[in-house]
Nucleic acid binder design. Structure first.
Length: 272
DNA sequence: AATACCGCCAACCGCCGCCAT
DNA sequence: TATGGCGGCGGTTGGCGGTAT
């Protein structure tokens, strides 16, 4: 959509692409899309790096793959806002899986991990504003090593709340309190949108999670331990193995990065 | 009309795991 | 077994457009 810097030698990528060739970056143009589509038509969505090595496009393999996955793949719901049902699914699954956007996206046909990620991020920002609370910046250093160790079995809203209010701290400091939060109709709607969150709120857990609870690292099948969430229509993950490497879809959970997970509020329900 | 703010989202980066060599 | 390439993922950035002030 909106470009970044363009025409730079490849940097940062671990793919080792570039090799002196000026790699193009930034927004894709129609001609590039056409070339990429043609390549996929001929060879399928795989061997992305060969697009560059064959001189078809001055783009990294990663860039080509991303463009295909997020924009060019058939049956994408591009430009269509999340429906209420999709929102509910995202909220529920985020509570179950954490920020496993790719995994969550498999339950949402036509949605990509980027879609889900952006959707959630927007909601996080909105709620942070509603609560007048700064978003907890994600520390790069803790991305995968100094983990925050989000309890994957618990709604992440609770985890976020720990960042907001030290255990036992009074609400008079100006920080949002449970009461303040529920006095906000907009924020309240978010909770009501999320049945398991509301349930925890009613249990008094929402803002006073026991800090002594162990911080879990997923070691067993989370599906067994996770609360049983219900869907009106149980979503079926849309397995998509374009490159004949299904390993990545449900591969072993990577260590959780430090996340600041916030509840979200229903915002847009209709397609444009 | 100008400015500020916010939502949206494309695309980048770094990290990680798998796999071929 | 070690290593490098590659693909995949999550976090983040930053520009554009719409809306509010």
């Amino acid at each position: 959509m909106h470009g970044r810097n363009t025409n730079t030698s490849n940097s940062g990528s671990s793919n080792g692409e570039g090799c002196g060739v000026v790699m193009r970056k930034g927004p894709w143009v129609a001609e590039e899309d056409e070339i990429l589509l043609e390549y996929v038509r001929k060879h399928g969505p795989r061997d992305w790096s060969s697009i560059r090595s064959k001189g078809l496009l001055p783009r990294t393999g990663k860039s080509c793959r991303l463009r295909w996955v997020n924009k060019l793949k058939p049956d994408l719901k591009t430009g269509c806002k999340f429906s209420a049902e999709e929102e509910r699914i995202v909220i529920d699954l985020q509570g179950r899986f954490g920020n496993k956007w790719a995994r969550i996206a498999t339950y949402l046909p036509g949605r990509t991990d980027n879609d889900v990620k952006n959707f959630w991020s927007t909601r996080q920002k909105r709620l942070a504003r509603l609560l007048q609370t700064p978003l907890q910046p994600n520390s790069k250093s803790s991305k995968s090593h100094g983990k925050l160790a989000v309890p994957n079995h618990a709604p992440t809203f609770e985890v976020a709340s720990l960042d907001l209010i030290p255990y036992g701290e009074e609400s008079s400091s100006g920080q949002c309190s449970q009461t303040d939060f529920m006095d906000n109709p907009d924020a309240r709607e978010m909770v009501q949108m999320t049945p398991h969150l509301e349930n925890h709120h009613h249990q008094g857990l929402l803002f006073n999670m026991d800090p002594t609870l162990p911080l879990l690292e997923p070691s067993v099948d989370q599906e067994v331990l996770l609360p049983q969430l219900h869907f009106d229509h149980l979503p079926n993950p849309e397995f998509d193995f374009p490159s004949s490497k299904p390993r990545t879809i449900f591969r072993a959970t990577r260590t959780s990065s430090s996340r600041t997970n916030w509840p979200a509020r229903r915002h847009h329900a209709a397609c444009r």
